[in-house]
Nucleic acid binder design. Structure first.
Lengths: 203, 203
DNA sequence: TCGATTAACATACAATCTGCATGTATCTGT
DNA sequence: ACAGATACATGCAGATTGTATGTTAATCGA
């Protein structure tokens, strides 16, 4: 056995190269933007060549999509991690989930990636699909559960989760832009509470 | 007087050229996208040269911004035109306004322009500013009036108008994508009604 | 009215960038 | 071990953006 020449399996090489590319791309896409980041820059930062990039990804957009999928999965995981499964108070759980979302979206560049460039580059349909498997799925499930238990009105859950999620997104954008967090949290909570069948009978 | 050689004032030439450029750019930006539209295409469609474009606009992005400003103003005007000034029922007026918005956003390409490419190319801050002078201003005014009259809870009006507007935007996107209009309208109305201090005491 | 100045373009150019085609080294299955 | 596949590396063609430079037409003061 000669370990001298660093013999690596193809699987390992592929995994490493793809990870390096995605990491470098993520950094540049968030520091600047998708449009302002060139593939020569990305491969330089990743320590590979453009040949490697175009071997593993169909084009620049495919690499971007890989970055987005990863990022959306990370956000989704962070939210689920901060919201324990069995929740006694569904309303509190939903609000806690939204707070977790705002916190997760404070990771630098995440808003640009998931809320600005993502929809523009990949299209809303694709982003909806990705979101629906991650952060927005949590929201939809929570709303569906609350409808079941009668905690909120019965409504088309997919549509409601989508537009409520959009409201969260815009709040995250505004907060990152320096807007007063309290104002947006208050507005969000008002929207959520408004879905309940009763006025304002909070403890 | 020799009208033979088409003597035009500089003012007229500038106005005409700018209008042609903006019209051609709007068409191409909506048929494809900002990124996929090249300046040679635009000037060809407008019947001018790239020299004219770069004489009147700092760069491609500046032309895009001119298109966006125009489009946002058009949408704002359509909404105000369909909602008479003195409204007896503020809630009905707000819902009518949202319907007018959805209708206005059905003009082909408008969602891509104002909701996808706009924020990505110009940034959310710029888009918020433009929106705040047009469609979103109407929403904010309506909400403020309802808070004054006690029709809805008192909340930070700017923040609420922004996230509610974001919900409208996402609904418009979904509707254009072929989603069931009723579902989104129902969800929107539920959000609006939820802001009222009373349960569901509609007539 | 006329010359000078400025505005409104037109044209050419330099620097990039993207995707692909082709060539080479390394790994994998038999 | 060897043939084929895989993982790159390199070079090229076409296209794009912004600018620099040249030209024509309008404006403005004397």
């Amino acid at each position: 056995m000669q370990e001298r020449k660093e013999r690596r399996s193809n699987r390992d090489r592929t995994d490493a190269t793809r990870r390096h590319l995605i990491a470098a791309a993520r950094r540049l896409f968030t520091e600047k933007s998708y449009a302002e980041t060139s593939t020569p820059e990305i491969v330089a930062a990743a320590g590979v060549t453009r040949g490697a990039l175009y071997h593993h990804f169909a084009d620049k957009q495919a690499l971007f999509r890989a970055v987005i999928e990863q990022e959306a999965a990370d956000v989704g995981a962070e939210i689920e991690a901060s919201t324990p499964a069995g929740a006694p108070d569904p309303r509190a759980a939903l609000i806690a989930g939204s707070d977790a979302y705002f916190l997760a979206m404070r990771v630098p560049g995440r808003t640009r990636l998931l809320l600005l460039d993502g929809p523009a580059v990949l299209g809303r349909t694709v982003l909806d699909d990705i979101d629906g498997r991650n952060a927005n799925r949590t929201l939809r499930d929570a709303l569906a559960a609350m409808m079941q238990s009668g905690a909120i009105k019965s409504l088309p859950v997919a549509a409601l989760a989508e537009i409520l999620g959009a409201a969260f997104d815009r709040a995250a954008l505004a907060i990152e832009a320096g807007a007063p967090v309290g104002d947006y949290r208050q507005a969000i909570v008002a929207l959520i509470d408004g879905l309940g069948p009763h006025p304002g009978s909070g403890s």
